[in-house]
Amino acid sequence: MLGRAANGVYWMARYLERAENTARLIDVGFHLALTRGNRASQEEEWKSVLTTTGQGAGYLVNHGEYTGVQVFNYLLREKDNPGSVLQMIEHARTNARVVRTSITNEVWEATNETWMLLRDLLSRPVRETNLGEVLAAIRRQAMLVRGAMEGSMLRNDVFNFARIGTFIERADSTARILDVKYYVLLPSVAWVGSNLDNVQWDTLLRSVAGNRAYSWLNAGNMDPRGIARFLILDRRFPRSLVFCYEKIRSNMAGLAMQYGGETQAHQLLRDAGAALHQITIEEVFEKGLHEFLREFIGKNTQIGGAIAADYRFIE
């Protein structure tokens, strides 16, 4: 397999995952803004959505206020936003075109269709009345492509690189979501029974589509430590950091098997994986949740870089 093709499937998967995660964040921001009467706290919510996606500074270049319509249009489709969902879908499709001979027709067609559909949906400004439809389409299409990969691709290096891209991106996203909101989980502000925190915790769980799963596992009891444990260490939850790393480990093992040897990235991943497995949630809080997450995000980026270098993504 060409290094450039590995790069292509890896980024195709990452961009799709990122588009889906952005859609989810917008959904939560919108939901939260609706439940808050006061304008200042609505703005605060939208601001934190921008911070989570790393687009706070870019937004301020041409915008002053944090109104919902402006923020979600910026995130979804604005031309001067290189990180808009529309751009990500275009990048995903461009990468799919580049690696067209490596992916199946099903995956290509699903990706191409996704691009055609969303380009059309996002060709006009999105209003509050059709935001729901747009966000649902983004999520559905991302799942369609993932399903096509799952159902049609050979389990070889191409598939492994795509999956690694998916889970590196997802781990990064979950860690960032947690990091922006880490203060709501700090014990010092965990007022028992506070209505505000219940909403904040619920929001956090919704951002990673984990609210139902969490409630089901914990019989509806919300506590910050439990939520942090769930998002970081629960092996059953498909967006937890541990889950993502377990997936990356197994896909990297697939590469080592096919290619007959490990790389430096395998070693880095083993170290990071071991650290995640050994740590308890008490130790995470002891260390400092914010510090823990910053460190995790840094290592995750480093692993992504090592994979790109070891497998010759670029010259």
Binding site: L2, R4, Y259, Y311
Partner: peptide
């Protein structure tokens, strides 16, 4: 993707 390696044209694979 291509370069000359040991007198042959070769492609950069993973």
């Amino acid at each position: 993707d291509l370069r000359v390696v040991d007198g042959r044209v070769a492609m950069r694979t993973t």
